[in-house]
């Protein structure tokens, strides 16, 4: 018996087409539950109000800028990091409800599933970012350095978001249980707070400051502050990721992709369990 493997071009085409179908699935879900998008934004929105107006009056921005201008890049970073939790929850739900098994038992392109899930997250990520930009403009934030740096900042957010969504795929496949995934969601909070997103890291105790400086949230926040021309540019003796935030974000993205894409694909393709 001859078992012909379909040519590569054919497989790639179907991987792409099936991936797109899964991105379309996300649109279908959003149409049914538009509130989900809002739900994901409730937290950053509360942060805008809470930090922007309540604590903001008492927090001193290093070079004397407006605190809400200082805060928004941190919230953009926070929204970017929600990719991990969002994708993790969706993948774990699919795995525990048997939807993942249905995909596996269908004659569809296998790689389309993780690529479709991360692609779908990109779609929701862009929508969430757009809403956050709207919220930022409302509270008086704005980019000051022109089109190109602004576009660069958003591009870097998207690149890092995509890399982070693969972390979500891997963790979701590893926990395989939507309830466990749900209990992990709150971990997101301390992770994003332990950074320069809300307050400068300069005042933190040494070991905490070290963690905060090397947190990718901090690098992404620093990138936005620099490229949007928002206050809070670090000065003096700062850690490497904050002194070179663009390089740091690109390196973080590359490292996450190099580690988590193969891990996720292996976890997804692995059979016999």
């Amino acid at each position: 018996m001859i078992t012909s493997t379909p040519p590569l071009a054919h497989r790639l085409r179907w991987t792409f087409a099936d991936g797109l179908t899964l991105v379309g699935r996300e649109l279908g879900r959003l149409r049914q539950e538009p509130g989900e998008l809002i739900g994901a934004l409730v937290f950053p929105a509360i942060m805008v109000v809470l930090f922007g107006y309540v604590f903001g009056s008492a927090i001193q921005v290093p070079d004397g800028g407006d605190y809400r201008e200082y805060l928004m890049p941190g919230l953009f970073a926070m929204v970017t990091f929600s990719a991990v939790m969002g994708v993790m929850t969706r993948v774990a739900t699919d795995a525990s409800r048997g939807v993942m098994d249905r995909f596996r038992s269908m004659p569809m392109a296998r790689l389309a599933v993780p690529f479709g899930q991360t692609g779908a997250d990109l779609l929701t990520g862009l929508l969430m970012l757009a809403i956050m930009v709207g919220a930022g403009l409302l509270v008086g934030w704005q980019p000051h350095r022109g089109l190109i740096p602004t576009a660069q900042a958003f591009l870097l957010m998207i690149v890092l978001r995509y890399a982070l969504s693969w972390v979500g795929v891997y963790v979701g496949l590893a926990v395989k249980n939507d309830q466990v995934a749900d209990t992990m969601v709150p971990l997101f909070l301390p992770f994003t707070m332990l950074s320069n997103a809300f307050v400068p890291t300069g005042g933190m105790p040494g070991w905490l400051r070290f963690l905060a400086d090397w947190n990718p949230v901090s690098a992404l926040t620093a990138v936005s502050r620099e490229l949007f021309g928002n206050p809070g540019a670090p000065s003096g003796n700062v850690a490497w990721p904050l002194a070179h935030p663009v390089a740091a974000v690109l390196l973080w993205s590359a490292a996450l992709l190099v580690i988590f894409v193969p891990l996720s694909l292996r976890a997804y393709m692995r059979r016999g369990r």
Binding site: R25, G28, R29, Q32, R97, G98, V99, D101, R102
Partner: peptide, 8 residues
């Protein structure tokens, strides 16, 4: 278990 997307 019923392997369908509950959200759709």
């Amino acid at each position: 278990s019923a392997a369908v997307d509950e959200k759709l």
